[in-house]
Every structure is written in C-alpha cells, then in structure tokens.
Design a protein around this nucleic acid. Structure first.
Lengths: 189, 189
DNA sequence: ATTCATTTACCGAACGTTCGGTTAAGGAGG
DNA sequence: CCTCCTTAACCGAACGTTCGGTAAATGAAT
C-alpha cells in the first residue's frame, strides 16, 4: 500500500491549528490544504465526511491529547496542589501563553449537533477531572463542582479577553491563580 | 432624498445579530442580506467599505448601546450594589440568558487590525466602568482593577462554556454572583 | 405650483474568485 | 494483481464586490 504523505497524528495536529485559528467557517479547504500539504481530494480520502468530519476529528484529537497530557496526571499520587501546578504549566504551553484560541470556543459557534455534543463532553471531562482533584484537596463534592466550573470559565474567559485586548497578562494571571483556586494553596512559583 | 428601507439603528441591530451568531467569516453577505432585507448592492451603499466596515459599525454600535444601557447607570447616585444588580439584570437580557454570543468573542478571531482595536477599547471601557464602581464600594484601585478583570473574564468564559455545553445555568450563576464579586454584597434577589 | 437638477436609497446583473465536493487516473508497496 | 494514497482536473454554488440604472424625495428657480 502507498505510504501516507502525512502521518495521522501530524495531520490532526496541523488540522487542529487551522480550526483553532480560524473557526469552522474560516477554516477553508484551501487553508487546510496549505497547512497540511494535502490536496483537497486527498483530504476527502482521509475524511470522507468532509469538513465536518475533520472538525469532529479535531475535537476528538484535542480531547484525547488534553486528557492524556493535562488531565491524566491529575489522577496521579502526588499532592493535589503539585498536580494542579503541573497542569497549569501545561495549560500555559497548550494555549501558547494565551496566543491560541480554544476549540471549545472556535468550534461551538457553528450549530451542528455532532460538534456540539463533542464540545460538551470535552468540557465536562475537563471539569470532572478538576472537581476530583479539588475533592482530594479537601473540598466537598458540591464545592468542588463549583470550583471546577469556575476554573474552566476563567480559563476560557481569559483566552477571549486576552485575544480581544491583545493583553496576554490576563491569561497568565488566571493560569497562575489556578492552584490557589482549586486547592487553596499558593502557587509557590 | 429617498426613504431608507431600514432605519440606521434597526439596520445595525440586525447586522449585529448576524455577526454575533456566525462570526466574521460566517456572516456572509447572503445571510446579512436576508437578515436586513437589503440586497447586496444596497449594503454597499450604506457601507462602502464592505464587510469589514459593517463589522466595525457593529462593534461601535454594540459598544455604544452597551455603554448607554449597562455602564452609564453604574455612574449614577445609587448604592454600588444596587447599580451592579441592575447591570447584572441587563447583562442577562443583553446576552438573552446566555443564548447569545459576545462580539468580543466572535469578532476578535479575525486578525484585522481595525477590528482588534475596537474590541480592545470596548473591553477596556467595560472593565474601567466596573473598576470605578468597585472603588466606590470600598475596593482599592488595584483591587478594583483585579475585580473588574475577573468579572469580565467570568462573563465571557461563562458565555463560551454555556454555548459549548448547552448548559445556560453556568451563565446565570456567574451573572447572579456579580454583585457579590464587585461590591462584596449579596445579590438579594 | 411647476419645473428641474441634485441627492439618496435601492436593486438586478454580472465580475472574478473561492467555496466544499467529486471523478478518474497514476504511482508505490504488499 | 490488488490495495492504498495521492493528484490533476473539474463541478455547481456561493463568495465579496462592482457597475449601471431606476424610483423617490429635496431645494431652488421659475
């Protein structure tokens, strides 16, 4: 069989970049083709469902990578505050210090049911992981849920505001404050 | 002179709806034409600068309406907590209980310098007004700035998360918590 | 009050470009 | 050979934009 010109994982990574930067409607096949190095027809070979399937794959890919790199460590044996500090550091990298948009934002505008379902489950997964670590740090289940919601809300809001104002310090501040918010401990940078 | 088919203010209102719902790239001239009742060519008579000028007009219009209806009352003679409660109620209406997106979000993705400048000044205007009322409620200037940033971040984040999850209670909760956050007083619904 | 040039607002039609998507054929590996 | 992956070429539709022209209201001069 012929060799794929771009490996699956690399392809998804490049695809993610386009949808992240331009949103669903702004992610034209030309841009996608340019970014991935694959012609339109090749993209349709990889994603017979077209653009919508690409967007779905992107959400799933980000969900998976996010879960593996940022959320899984939260379930490790370390101290809650340490684990949240680690996640905060990786969040900072994940969003490139506030320069990148979140696909929960850019891909939830379009009202396509399959995309909505995927963004919803991704958001819930994130919040649940945060709630668990908050419970571990001493919060009641109810408190933990509230804290995890607030944490995600702050990160998403900070991304929007950083983008809208061009001031990335807003994002940095929110990131640094996450350990205190979720575990009550100071960040000890 | 001929009578305008749609009054300036009504036109801007309808225009706003399209950009709010679909973002810059998703706001096609066909959609805009359908929503406003004006044909493509007529839109270019009103906005010779084309789509970008329409987007600029939308931001300016929202900025003005937002300032008049939500921020101006914050400078009135009433008690800070009362004023914030009023703003919170109007915010709830402004975003239709979390169903509407914020143009700071939908129009800041596109990297067009004029749009960025407008979203930035709108965001700063909002935060300044909130900081003023926080100072009035007893916060130090530094605290007030932090609180106003956090308030706007929360509102924007809640809008994203409500949209991504379909759960508008997140938005409602943030709205109800604004008076406490900014003035330290309970909402007393 | 009537004319008339001017201005404002609108629209049909078309511009060239790009959109998302398809078809048929070719090259590489098993 | 057969299967997988890629591509050139192509499609109708929609994109943002422009142009020529029409209808309605205005102000000034008659």
């Amino acid at each position: 069989m012929a060799l794929p010109k771009v490996e699956e994982d690399d392809l998804l990574e490049r695809l993610t970049g386009v949808f992240q930067k331009h949103g669903f409607e702004g992610a034209s096949l030309s841009r996608i083709s340019r970014a991935t190095g694959l012609k339109r027809a090749s993209l349709y070979h990889r994603f017979p469902g077209g653009k919508e399937e690409m967007a779905q794959a992107v959400i799933r890919h980000v969900h998976e990578r996010f879960g593996r790199d940022l959320l899984e460590p939260l379930r490790g044996p370390d101290k809650p505050a340490d684990k949240v500090r680690l996640m905060a550091r990786r969040l900072d990298r994940f969003y490139d210090k506030g320069r990148q948009s979140c696909i929960l934002d850019t891909l939830s505008l379009e009202d396509l049911a399959p995309l909505r379902q995927l963004t919803a489950s991704a958001a819930h997964g994130w919040m649940e992981a945060l709630a668990e670590v908050a419970v571990e740090a001493g919060a009641s289940p109810q408190e933990a849920r509230n804290l995890s919601e607030e944490a995600v809300i702050r990160v998403e809001g900070a991304l929007i505001l950083s983008r809208a104002t061009g001031d990335r310090r807003l994002f940095e501040k929110v990131i640094e404050d996450l350990p205190r918010l979720l575990t009550g401990e100071d960040p000890e940078v």
